[in-house]
Protein backbone atom coordinates (compact mmCIF):
# COMPACT_ATOMS: atom_id res chain seq x y z
CA UNK A 1 0.00 0.00 0.00
CA UNK A 2 2.66 2.45 1.09
CA UNK A 3 6.22 1.93 0.08
CA UNK A 4 8.92 4.29 1.26
CA UNK A 5 12.44 4.02 -0.07
CA UNK A 6 15.48 5.89 1.15
CA UNK A 7 13.41 8.84 2.32
CA UNK A 8 15.43 11.75 3.67
CA UNK A 9 14.82 15.27 4.87
CA UNK A 10 17.69 17.52 5.78
CA UNK A 11 17.25 20.93 7.35
CA UNK A 12 19.91 23.58 7.35
CA UNK A 13 20.12 25.05 10.81
CA UNK A 14 22.55 27.42 12.44
CA UNK A 15 24.40 24.41 13.86
CA UNK A 16 24.74 22.95 10.36
CA UNK A 17 22.85 20.26 8.47
CA UNK A 18 20.27 18.33 10.43
CA UNK A 19 19.04 14.96 9.19
CA UNK A 20 15.50 15.02 10.54
CA UNK A 21 14.63 11.94 8.48
CA UNK A 22 17.60 9.89 7.44
CA UNK A 23 17.44 7.37 4.60
CA UNK A 24 14.27 5.72 5.81
CA UNK A 25 12.81 2.63 4.15
CA UNK A 26 9.48 1.15 5.16
CA UNK A 27 6.57 -0.83 3.78
CA UNK A 28 3.08 -0.47 5.13
CA UNK A 29 0.36 -2.92 4.22
CA UNK A 30 -3.17 -2.04 3.27
CA UNK A 31 -5.66 -1.92 6.14
CA UNK A 32 -2.95 -1.85 8.78
CA UNK A 33 -2.72 0.46 11.75
CA UNK A 34 0.94 1.30 11.62
CA UNK A 35 2.41 3.02 14.66
CA UNK A 36 5.51 5.17 14.66
CA UNK A 37 6.88 5.86 18.10
CA UNK A 38 9.83 7.95 19.18
CA UNK A 39 10.84 10.65 21.60
CA UNK A 40 10.40 14.32 20.84
CA UNK A 41 12.75 15.39 18.07
CA UNK A 42 13.13 11.88 16.64
CA UNK A 43 11.73 13.09 13.31
CA UNK A 44 8.25 11.57 13.50
CA UNK A 45 6.35 14.68 12.48
CA UNK A 46 8.78 15.41 9.68
CA UNK A 47 8.34 11.83 8.48
CA UNK A 48 4.56 11.96 8.40
CA UNK A 49 4.57 15.40 6.76
CA UNK A 50 6.84 14.06 4.04
CA UNK A 51 4.20 11.48 3.16
CA UNK A 52 1.84 14.12 1.77
CA UNK A 53 4.70 16.45 0.94
CA UNK A 54 3.77 19.18 3.39
CA UNK A 55 7.51 18.88 3.73
CA UNK A 56 9.51 18.45 0.51
CA UNK A 57 11.82 15.41 0.69
CA UNK A 58 15.53 15.95 0.26
CA UNK A 59 15.72 12.51 -1.30
CA UNK A 60 13.97 9.18 -1.65
CA UNK A 61 10.69 7.92 -2.96
CA UNK A 62 7.16 7.57 -1.61
CA UNK A 63 4.65 5.33 -3.32
CA UNK A 64 1.10 5.37 -2.03
CA UNK A 65 -1.38 3.04 -3.69
CA UNK A 66 0.87 2.63 -6.73
CA UNK A 67 1.22 6.37 -7.19
CA UNK A 68 4.60 8.00 -6.91
CA UNK A 69 3.92 10.94 -4.62
CA UNK A 70 7.49 12.19 -4.90
CA UNK A 71 7.29 12.55 -8.70
CA UNK A 72 4.06 14.54 -8.80
CA UNK A 73 3.71 18.14 -9.96
CA UNK A 74 1.79 20.61 -7.82
CA UNK A 75 -1.56 19.93 -9.46
CA UNK A 76 -1.34 16.13 -9.29
CA UNK A 77 -0.19 16.42 -5.70
CA UNK A 78 -3.27 18.47 -4.77
CA UNK A 79 -5.50 15.76 -6.19
CA UNK A 80 -3.49 13.00 -4.47
CA UNK A 81 -3.76 14.83 -1.15
CA UNK A 82 -7.52 14.55 -1.32
CA UNK A 83 -7.01 10.80 -0.89
CA UNK A 84 -4.77 11.20 2.15
CA UNK A 85 -6.53 12.31 5.30
CA UNK A 86 -4.56 14.04 8.03
CA UNK A 87 -5.37 14.42 11.72
CA UNK A 88 -3.43 16.91 13.84
CA UNK A 89 -2.44 17.13 17.47
CA UNK A 90 -3.98 20.56 17.87
CA UNK A 91 -6.97 19.75 15.66
CA UNK A 92 -6.40 22.72 13.32
CA UNK A 93 -10.09 23.46 12.85
CA UNK A 94 -11.34 26.72 11.37
CA UNK A 95 -12.87 28.58 14.29
CA UNK A 96 -14.93 30.67 11.89
CA UNK A 97 -16.83 27.61 10.71
CA UNK A 98 -19.29 25.36 12.49
CA UNK A 99 -18.70 21.64 12.95
CA UNK A 100 -20.67 20.83 9.81
CA UNK A 101 -18.91 23.56 7.82
CA UNK A 102 -15.51 22.35 8.96
CA UNK A 103 -16.31 18.83 7.83
CA UNK A 104 -17.66 20.18 4.55
CA UNK A 105 -14.44 22.07 3.79
CA UNK A 106 -12.49 19.21 2.15
CA UNK A 107 -15.63 18.40 0.15
CA UNK A 108 -15.73 22.00 -1.10
CA UNK A 109 -12.10 21.65 -2.11
CA UNK A 110 -12.83 18.41 -3.94
CA UNK A 111 -15.71 20.12 -5.75
CA UNK A 112 -18.67 18.16 -4.36
CA UNK A 113 -22.03 19.69 -5.27
CA UNK A 114 -23.82 21.23 -2.30
CA UNK A 115 -26.58 18.64 -1.87
CA UNK A 116 -24.14 15.72 -1.88
CA UNK A 117 -21.94 17.62 0.50
CA UNK A 118 -24.68 18.00 3.09
CA UNK A 119 -25.54 14.35 2.90
CA UNK A 120 -21.93 13.28 3.30
CA UNK A 121 -21.44 15.64 6.24
CA UNK A 122 -24.42 14.06 7.99
CA UNK A 123 -22.96 10.58 7.47
CA UNK A 124 -19.63 11.67 8.89
CA UNK A 125 -21.20 13.37 11.88
CA UNK A 126 -22.95 10.13 12.70
CA UNK A 127 -19.79 8.10 12.13
CA UNK A 128 -17.75 10.09 14.64
CA UNK A 129 -20.57 10.45 17.14
CA UNK A 130 -21.25 14.17 16.97
CA UNK A 131 -24.95 14.10 16.20
CA UNK A 132 -26.63 17.22 17.55
CA UNK A 133 -23.42 19.30 17.53
CA UNK A 134 -23.35 20.12 13.82
CA UNK A 135 -24.04 23.82 14.32
CA UNK A 136 -21.65 24.32 17.21
CA UNK A 137 -18.44 26.28 16.72
CA UNK A 138 -15.12 24.63 17.63
CA UNK A 139 -14.77 26.97 20.62
CA UNK A 140 -17.89 25.37 22.09
CA UNK A 141 -16.48 21.84 21.92
CA UNK A 142 -14.29 19.78 24.26
CA UNK A 143 -10.89 18.55 23.09
CA UNK A 144 -12.23 15.10 22.33
CA UNK A 145 -15.11 16.52 20.31
CA UNK A 146 -12.73 18.77 18.39
CA UNK A 147 -10.63 15.76 17.47
CA UNK A 148 -13.76 13.95 16.32
CA UNK A 149 -14.39 16.86 13.97
CA UNK A 150 -10.75 16.62 12.86
CA UNK A 151 -11.19 12.92 12.13
CA UNK A 152 -14.50 13.39 10.33
CA UNK A 153 -12.90 16.11 8.21
CA UNK A 154 -9.95 13.86 7.38
CA UNK A 155 -12.32 11.09 6.32
CA UNK A 156 -14.63 13.29 4.26
CA UNK A 157 -13.15 12.49 0.86
CA UNK A 158 -13.01 8.76 1.58
CA UNK A 159 -9.23 8.63 1.71
CA UNK A 160 -7.20 5.46 1.40
CA UNK A 161 -4.74 6.54 4.04
CA UNK A 162 -5.14 8.41 7.30
CA UNK A 163 -2.12 10.16 8.79
CA UNK A 164 -2.39 10.93 12.50
CA UNK A 165 0.34 13.06 14.05
CA UNK A 166 0.03 12.85 17.83
CA UNK A 167 -3.73 12.83 17.40
CA UNK A 168 -4.31 12.06 21.07
CA UNK A 169 -1.40 13.84 22.69
CA UNK A 170 -3.43 16.91 23.63
CA UNK A 171 -6.19 14.84 25.21
CA UNK A 172 -6.70 13.40 28.69
CA UNK A 173 -6.34 9.61 29.11
CA UNK A 174 -10.04 8.83 28.98
CA UNK A 175 -10.64 10.90 25.87
CA UNK A 176 -7.51 9.37 24.34
CA UNK A 177 -9.02 5.92 24.73
CA UNK A 178 -12.31 7.04 23.20
CA UNK A 179 -10.52 8.54 20.19
CA UNK A 180 -8.38 5.41 19.79
CA UNK A 181 -11.53 3.28 19.85
CA UNK A 182 -12.95 5.51 17.14
CA UNK A 183 -9.82 5.02 15.02
CA UNK A 184 -10.04 1.22 15.37
CA UNK A 185 -13.71 1.39 14.50
CA UNK A 186 -12.96 3.40 11.36
CA UNK A 187 -10.09 1.11 10.43
CA UNK A 188 -12.41 -1.89 10.60
CA UNK A 189 -15.47 -0.29 9.02
CA UNK A 190 -13.71 1.46 6.17
CA UNK A 191 -10.63 -0.73 5.87
CA UNK A 192 -8.36 2.24 5.48
CA UNK A 193 -4.69 2.26 6.33
CA UNK A 194 -3.76 4.36 9.34
CA UNK A 195 -0.34 5.72 10.14
CA UNK A 196 -0.23 6.85 13.70
CA UNK A 197 2.55 8.94 15.19
CA UNK A 198 2.90 9.01 18.94
CA UNK A 199 5.33 9.21 21.82
CA UNK A 200 3.12 7.06 24.04
CA UNK A 201 3.57 3.29 24.02
CA UNK A 202 0.10 3.00 25.47
CA UNK A 203 -1.34 4.20 22.17
CA UNK A 204 0.71 1.70 20.14
CA UNK A 205 -0.21 -1.12 22.49
CA UNK A 206 -3.88 -0.36 22.30
CA UNK A 207 -4.51 -0.16 18.57
CA UNK A 208 -1.50 -0.84 16.34
CA UNK A 209 -0.63 -3.96 14.39
CA UNK A 210 2.85 -2.88 13.40
CA UNK A 211 5.22 -0.48 15.04
CA UNK A 212 8.36 1.32 13.97
CA UNK A 213 10.57 2.91 16.58
CA UNK A 214 12.28 6.10 15.44
CA UNK A 215 15.41 7.65 16.81
CA UNK A 216 17.45 10.47 15.26
CA UNK A 217 15.64 10.25 11.93
CA UNK A 218 16.02 6.50 11.52
CA UNK A 219 13.79 3.52 12.17
CA UNK A 220 15.83 1.58 14.70
CA UNK A 221 13.40 -1.23 15.27
CA UNK A 222 10.30 -2.40 13.52
CA UNK A 223 7.87 -5.28 13.55
CA UNK A 224 4.73 -6.79 14.91
CA UNK A 225 3.65 -4.92 18.03
CA UNK A 226 3.72 -8.05 20.19
CA UNK A 227 7.15 -9.12 18.98
CA UNK A 228 8.53 -5.71 19.70
CA UNK A 229 6.90 -5.75 23.11
CA UNK A 230 8.26 -9.15 23.90
CA UNK A 231 11.76 -8.87 22.53
CA UNK A 232 12.68 -5.21 22.45
CA UNK A 233 16.22 -5.01 21.12
CA UNK A 234 17.18 -1.35 21.18
CA UNK A 235 17.58 0.59 24.39
CA UNK A 236 15.04 3.16 23.21
CA UNK A 237 12.48 0.43 22.56
CA UNK A 238 13.06 -1.06 25.99
CA UNK A 239 12.36 2.30 27.52
CA UNK A 240 9.10 2.58 25.63
CA UNK A 241 8.06 -0.91 26.64
CA UNK A 242 8.84 -0.02 30.24
CA UNK A 243 6.42 2.90 29.85
CA UNK A 244 3.49 0.50 29.86
CA UNK A 245 5.06 -2.43 31.65
CA UNK A 246 6.58 -0.57 34.54
CA UNK A 247 10.30 -0.70 35.15
CA UNK A 248 12.30 -3.59 33.86
CA UNK A 249 11.89 -6.45 36.31
CA UNK A 250 15.22 -8.17 35.80
CA UNK A 251 16.87 -6.16 38.56
CA UNK A 252 14.37 -7.20 41.13
CA UNK A 253 14.54 -10.92 40.33
CA UNK A 254 17.68 -11.25 42.34
CA UNK A 255 16.05 -9.75 45.39
CA UNK A 256 13.10 -12.10 44.99
CA UNK A 257 15.36 -15.09 44.65
CA UNK A 258 17.03 -14.07 47.86
CA UNK A 259 13.78 -13.48 49.69
CA UNK A 260 11.85 -16.61 48.69
CA UNK A 261 13.98 -19.63 49.30
CA UNK A 262 11.27 -22.26 49.17
CA UNK A 263 9.70 -24.01 46.17
CA UNK A 264 10.14 -22.95 42.60
CA UNK A 265 10.27 -19.35 41.37
CA UNK A 266 9.19 -18.88 37.82
CA UNK A 267 8.53 -16.10 35.40
CA UNK A 268 5.42 -16.45 33.27
CA UNK A 269 5.29 -14.38 30.15
CA UNK A 270 1.89 -13.79 28.62
CA UNK A 271 2.24 -13.02 24.96
CA UNK A 272 -1.01 -11.90 23.44
CA UNK A 273 -2.75 -14.48 25.54
CA UNK A 274 -6.42 -15.16 24.99
CA UNK A 275 -6.82 -18.86 25.83
CA UNK A 276 -4.55 -19.27 28.84
CA UNK A 277 -5.39 -16.14 30.75
CA UNK A 278 -6.78 -18.21 33.60
CA UNK A 279 -3.56 -20.23 33.89
CA UNK A 280 -3.06 -19.61 37.60
CA UNK A 281 -6.46 -20.85 38.70
CA UNK A 282 -6.13 -23.73 36.26
CA UNK A 283 -2.87 -24.81 37.86
CA UNK A 284 -4.22 -24.50 41.37
CA UNK A 285 -7.20 -26.67 40.49
CA UNK A 286 -5.26 -29.30 38.61
CA UNK A 287 -2.21 -29.78 40.83
CA UNK A 288 -1.90 -30.08 44.60
CA UNK A 289 0.27 -27.00 44.90
CA UNK A 290 0.11 -23.46 46.27
CA UNK A 291 0.84 -20.49 44.08
CA UNK A 292 2.13 -17.20 45.39
CA UNK A 293 2.06 -14.27 43.01
CA UNK A 294 5.14 -12.24 43.90
CA UNK A 295 5.21 -9.60 41.26
CA UNK A 296 3.77 -8.84 37.88
CA UNK A 297 2.05 -6.68 35.43
CA UNK A 298 -0.44 -7.74 32.83
CA UNK A 299 -1.74 -5.37 30.24
CA UNK A 300 -4.32 -5.82 27.51
CA UNK A 301 -3.23 -5.31 23.92
CA UNK A 302 -5.12 -5.59 20.69
CA UNK A 303 -4.12 -9.25 20.58
CA UNK A 304 -4.91 -10.26 24.13
CA UNK A 305 -3.09 -10.16 27.44
CA UNK A 306 0.53 -9.26 27.49
CA UNK A 307 2.85 -9.13 30.45
CA UNK A 308 4.82 -10.92 33.08
CA UNK A 309 4.02 -12.63 36.36
CA UNK A 310 6.58 -13.87 38.81
CA UNK A 311 5.20 -16.66 40.94
CA UNK A 312 6.37 -18.96 43.64
CA UNK A 313 5.14 -22.55 43.47
CA UNK A 314 5.04 -24.54 46.69
CA UNK A 315 4.44 -28.27 46.79
CA UNK A 316 5.99 -31.69 46.43
CA UNK A 317 8.95 -31.91 44.08
CA UNK A 318 7.36 -34.21 41.53
CA UNK A 319 4.20 -32.09 41.46
CA UNK A 320 6.31 -29.06 40.74
CA UNK A 321 8.04 -30.92 37.93
CA UNK A 322 4.68 -31.83 36.45
CA UNK A 323 3.57 -28.20 36.61
CA UNK A 324 6.68 -27.09 34.76
CA UNK A 325 6.12 -29.75 32.16
CA UNK A 326 2.44 -28.87 31.84
CA UNK A 327 3.05 -25.17 31.29
CA UNK A 328 5.75 -25.69 28.72
CA UNK A 329 3.94 -28.39 26.80
CA UNK A 330 0.24 -27.63 27.10
CA UNK A 331 0.01 -23.85 27.11
CA UNK A 332 1.28 -21.03 24.97
CA UNK A 333 2.52 -19.12 27.99
CA UNK A 334 6.26 -18.51 27.98
CA UNK A 335 7.87 -19.84 31.12
CA UNK A 336 11.25 -19.55 32.69
CA UNK A 337 12.29 -21.14 35.94
CA UNK A 338 14.28 -18.49 37.73
CA UNK A 339 15.24 -20.40 40.77
CA UNK A 340 14.64 -23.95 41.75
CA UNK A 341 15.30 -24.29 45.45
CA UNK A 342 16.50 -27.82 44.86
Amino acid sequence: MISIKGLSKHFTTREGALKAVDNLTLDIKEGEIFGVIGYSGAGKSTFVRLLNRLEEPTGGQIIIDQEDITAMNAKALRVARQDIGMVFQHFNLLWSRTVAENIAFPLEIAGYPKAKREQRVQELIRLVGLTGREDAYPSQLSGGQKQRVGIARALANEPKVLLCDEATSALDPETTDAILDLLVDINQKLGLTIILITHEMHVIRKICNQVAVMEAGKVVEQGDVLDVFLHPKQAVTKRFVAQVMGEDETDSYEQLVGAYKEGTLMRLQFVGETTNQALISQLAKTFPIDINILQGKITQTKHGAYGTLIVQLLGADDDLQRVVHYISEETSVDMEVIDDAH
Partner: peptide
Protein backbone atom coordinates in the same frame (compact mmCIF):
# COMPACT_ATOMS: atom_id res chain seq x y z
CA UNK B 1 -3.09 29.71 13.01
CA UNK B 2 -0.47 28.20 10.67
CA UNK B 3 -1.82 24.78 11.46
CA UNK B 4 -5.13 25.68 9.87
CA UNK B 5 -3.42 26.80 6.67
CA UNK B 6 -1.46 23.57 6.73
CA UNK B 7 -4.62 21.53 7.23
CA UNK B 8 -6.10 23.18 4.14
CA UNK B 9 -2.95 22.39 2.16
CA UNK B 10 -3.12 18.78 3.33
CA UNK B 11 -6.67 18.65 1.95
CA UNK B 12 -5.37 19.69 -1.44
CA UNK B 13 -6.57 23.31 -1.39
Amino acid sequence: DKGVVEAAQAMGA
